[in-house]
Amino acid sequence: MELLFSLVIGVLSASGIYLLLRGRTFSIIVGLALLSYAVNLFLVSTGGLHTHSAAVIGASAAPADPLPQALVLTAIVIGFAMSAFMVILAIRARAELGNDHVDGKQGEEGSTR
C-alpha cells in the first residue's frame, strides 16, 4: 500500500512538474493543481496511512493524526484562492500582452530566449 501511495505521489508530481515547465500559462495552472494534489497527499501521509480511524474522539480507538489534516485543509482552501488569483493574472497578462506565453513574448516554445 505504502509503495503504491508513493508511486501515485511521484507520478502526480512528475506530471505536474512537466506541465510547470511548459511555456503557456494554462498548462502551468493545471500543473500547479496537480502538484498541489501531490503535496497535499504527501502531507496527509506524514501522519501515517490509517483506515477507518477518522480523527474524531470516540469514533475510533486509534484516531489518525489530526495535525497534518488540519494543515492540509487550510492548504486546499488557500491553494484554491491562489490558483484563482493565478488564473485571473494569466487572463490579465493575456489581455495586456496579447499572448499567453509566460515570458510575455509570442515565440517558439523551444527557443531559449
Binding site: 505504502e2 508513493s6 511521484g10 502526480l12 508530481s13 506530471s15 512537466y18 515547465l21 504527501f42 489530526p66
Partner: peptide, 28 residues
C-alpha cells in the same frame, strides 16, 4: 523536461516511501 520531471517525481516518491515505512513520530 521529461527527464527533470521524472527524476523529481522519483525523488519525491522515494522520500514519501522512506517516510511511510518508518515509525511516525507525532506531536498530536
Amino acid at each position: 523536461d521529461v527527464l527533470l520531471a521524472g527524476s523529481l517525481g522519483l525523488v519525491i516518491a522515494g522520500l514519501n516511501y522512506a517516510l511511510l515505512t518508518r515509525e511516525v513520530l507525532s506531536i498530536s
